[in-house]
Design a protein around this nucleic acid. Structure first.
Length: 438
RNA sequence: GACCCUAUCGUCCAGUGGCCCAGGACACUCCCCUUUCACGGGAGUAACACGGGUUCGAAUCCCGUUAGGGUCGCCA
């Protein structure tokens, strides 16, 4: 095990966190955790703008939502700050002087450029292997613009040296850049870190993912109500696998098994369907308390008056297995908490308006009113018994009852729904439906 | 265009010379369960890009072609 693994995620604050970026952060985090190393967050804001605060917030929120807490860096501090490039000018100038002293810099129209030796360079990559670059026709890189602002390649290398980064794990789009960076390390007489270029994440059709593609922004998962552990699990499986065909795998186990040299070299297409499937797996096996916690913001946003915590928990319990995303929860539970729920017209037509529906509903109401113990088991037995007695199918009772009490044709298990709602509420609503539609 | 990377079911992965006429998962189709919607269980369709080698033997190694992706910025 390396004595001091130090890795960094170095996004530029663009206002949103891309899944590709999140996956890069995740792999850095996994590598750090696996090696008991340090995971650093550095903000690459060479173009300092002041609406940046909000953009940085988006990165913090996205990483924290995914459970990728950093040990050192922006918003957290550490021995190598500042972790914002916009605040590191003094350091960059120092390194610029070093290059100056070596006579490898020259000026061109006010900008400072680095003269390349154009000698072949070898990148020994942990993921891609040994790659030779013929740099004979590469142009020189620019280090600083005429206005004094810095260019990515230079500050990126300087920061990695200064922050004692041991492994640079980043997207494959930087693979070619690495040959340039290596020359910079040499010119600065610094030992380069190990590199690991991980494959990119593309759309299903192989095109590059942009902000508007579904699932490209981490914020969209938060908005739709995905379980963060599910999204994280899905991201782990993009370019990496536990090699034993498992799909649902705990993060602790991934940390234990993670190995950069086992990362794929092929770009991966993003499949939201599979992410959705994993999300459902996680929701179904999640504890009720966790479900309560993750659905809270959606329930509040919908303005549902769920002041009776105990009642809310019982409602959530019977609805949990039905939910695909937390955003759907209010639609599934609102009628439990208000008499002002909406009656779906086609549901009414297809059940309550059917001939004989009202008569059957009255019979069910009476049978339920006479019930001694109000439980799902009794509710089911009573309904089925009544069906036989009056000679109709169970469905002819179930459907009208469901619509009468919830206003819709789709919902949780009828008997459990009634059990949770309680006798008074159920009978009252059946009476009202009979009045309204009878 | 130059340089670099990649190439197994529609998608994500498994497979590192014989155990593979290729395995798992998602999606899709069908069946069962369930008189809602889902879950769950079972079955099915579906791939080693192409052409040359190497080898007794290749999805696995080599070369070429093709295709996809990346980089060539005073973007990051």
């Amino acid at each position: 095990m390396s004595p001091s693994v130090r890795v960094r995620f170095a996004p530029s604050p663009t206002g949103y966190l891309h899944v590709g970026g999140a996956r890069t952060a995740l792999f850095n985090w996994l590598f750090a955790r696996h090696n008991r190393g340090t995971f650093i967050l550095r903000i690459e804001d060479t173009d300092k703008s002041r609406e940046q605060e909000q953009a940085v917030r988006v990165i913090y929120d996205g990483l924290r939502w995914l459970g990728l807490e950093w040990d050192e860096g922006a918003g957290r501090g550490g021995p190598f700050g500042s972790y914002f490039q916009s605040e590191r000018t003094v350091i960059y100038e120092k390194y610029l002087n070093v290059l100056q002293g070596k006579g490898v810099l020259y000026e061109e129209e006010g900008a400072i450029r680095f003269r390349s030796s154009r000698k072949p360079v070898v990148v020994d990559d942990l993921v891609c292997g040994r790659i030779e670059f013929d740099r004979s026709s590469d142009p020189d890189i620019t280090v600083r613009r005429p206005d004094g602002s810095w260019i990515f390649h230079f500050v990126n290398v300087v920061d990695d040296i200064e922050m004692q980064i041991s492994h640079v794990i980043r997207g494959e789009d930087h693979l070619t850049n690495t040959s340039k960076h290596l020359e910079l390390y040499e010119a600065l007489s610094a030992e380069p870190p190990r590199f690991a270029h991980i494959p990119l994440i593309l759309n299903r059709d192989g095109s590059k993912m942009s902000k508007r593609d579904a699932g490209s922004s981490i914020a969209s998962y938060v908005e739709q109500g995905y379980a963060p552990e599910a999204v994280r699990n899905y991201l782990c499986l993009l370019g990496w696998s536990p090699k034993d065909n498992r799909e649902v795998i705990s993060i602790d186990e991934v940390v234990q098994l993670f190995d950069l040299t086992k990362v794929n070299r092929k770009n991966a297409a993003f499949d939201l369907d599979k992410c959705d499937w994993l999300n459902r797996q996680y929701i179904h096996s999640m504890s009720l308390n966790r479900f309560r916690e993750l659905t809270d913001s959606f329930i509040r946003a919908a303005g549902i008056n769920a002041s009776d915590e105990n009642y809310l928990l019982r409602v959530l319990e019977i609805v949990k297995e039905k939910i695909k995303f937390f955003k759907e929860v209010p639609d599934w539970i609102d009628f439990f908490f208000t008499e002002g729920f909406h009656f779906d017209q086609s549901a009414v037509e297809q059940s309550l308006r059917k001939p004989g529906a009202m008569r059957r509903l009255r019979s069910l109401r009476d049978a339920y009113a006479a019930l001694e113990v109000w439980s799902a088991t009794n509710l089911e037995a009573t309904l089925k018994h009544l069906g036989k007695e009056i000679g109709c199918k169970a469905g002819d009772l179930i459907h009208p009852a469901r619509v009468a009490v919830s206003g819709r044709a789709i919902g949780p298990s009828l008997y459990h729904m009634f059990e949770v709602m309680g006798r008074d509420r159920v009978l009252r609503r059946i009476d009202r439906a009979i009045q309204l539609f009878g």
